[in-house]
Computed example of a mutant assay.
Amino acid sequence: MHDLLQHGLTVFLGFFAIMNPLPNTVAFVGLTAHQQQAQRMKTASKALMLSFVIICAFAILGKSIFHLFGISLAALRITGGIIVFIIGYQMLKGSGNTLHQGEDLQAEDVSISPLAVPLLAGPGTIATAMNYSASAGWGEIILTIAMFGVLCVTTFFSFVYGQSIIQKIGDNGLNIITRLMGLILAVIGCQMLIQGVLDVVAQYQHHLS
């Protein structure tokens, strides 16, 4: 039980840092500035539901994807760690998350792109979901999905009440939160990278013995 609770907390913090709801809320408010409140709620719901489905698919099918393409967990951890570190480093510098940006204000349906992909279910989020579920049992996989679901609900309210939240926090508060989330992401990325390298070393030693 303690391991599951620790896994759940780690997963939630990882997802929270990489999705970073507050800066994403700024993007959402800008993309939906021309919409009425009812339409904003619909856009937010559609974007988050699509993101949830994408992350569920990668969390559940992670092992099958590995076998299909001959990918090892170590390779995912190394690659995912690099991606997550780059995202965190960019946020730490205050330059924003370029892997999660690319908003097209003229897009016909912003709930699909850029909100769902790549703003919410971007490469870092997918790599994080697969990393936490690929080598785990069904309990950890379900918990990973549940934690992402909780974050989606939290993000929904952040989106819906985005304008009020941004006004209360202000630019300085938003910059501080973004940098803190960037630091957490950079550390998570380093940990994933270190674990991946250790896995490769262990596999090499096992092969020699």
Rank of each mutant, 00 (worst) to 15 (best):
T154C: 15
S45A: 14
A57F: 07
L48Y: 00
A75E: 09
G81M: 14
F58T: 02
L68Y: 09
A33D: 13
L198Y: 08
P21S: 01
V11D: 07
L99W: 06
G182K: 02
A27W: 01
A38Q: 14
L120N: 08
G102V: 04
I176W: 03
Q205V: 05
A44P: 00
I169K: 00
V110C: 03
L68E: 04
A186K: 03
G81I: 13
S45P: 00
P123W: 04
G124S: 10
F15E: 03
I177A: 08
T155C: 14
T98W: 06
A38S: 12
I176G: 03
L73A: 11
T178G: 07
S72E: 09
L99A: 09
I184Q: 00
Q36M: 07
R40G: 02
V201G: 00
Y161D: 08
H34S: 10
E140Q: 15
Q101D: 12
S64I: 06
G196I: 05
H34M: 06
I87A: 15
Y89K: 14
L50H: 03
H207M: 06
I166P: 05
T128E: 10
A27D: 02
L5K: 07
W138S: 14
Y161R: 12
A17H: 02
G70M: 06
L48T: 01
A129L: 06
G137A: 15
T25V: 09
S164I: 14
G196Q: 06
A38R: 14
V200I: 12
I141E: 12
M147T: 15
I54S: 01
L185Y: 03
L4C: 07
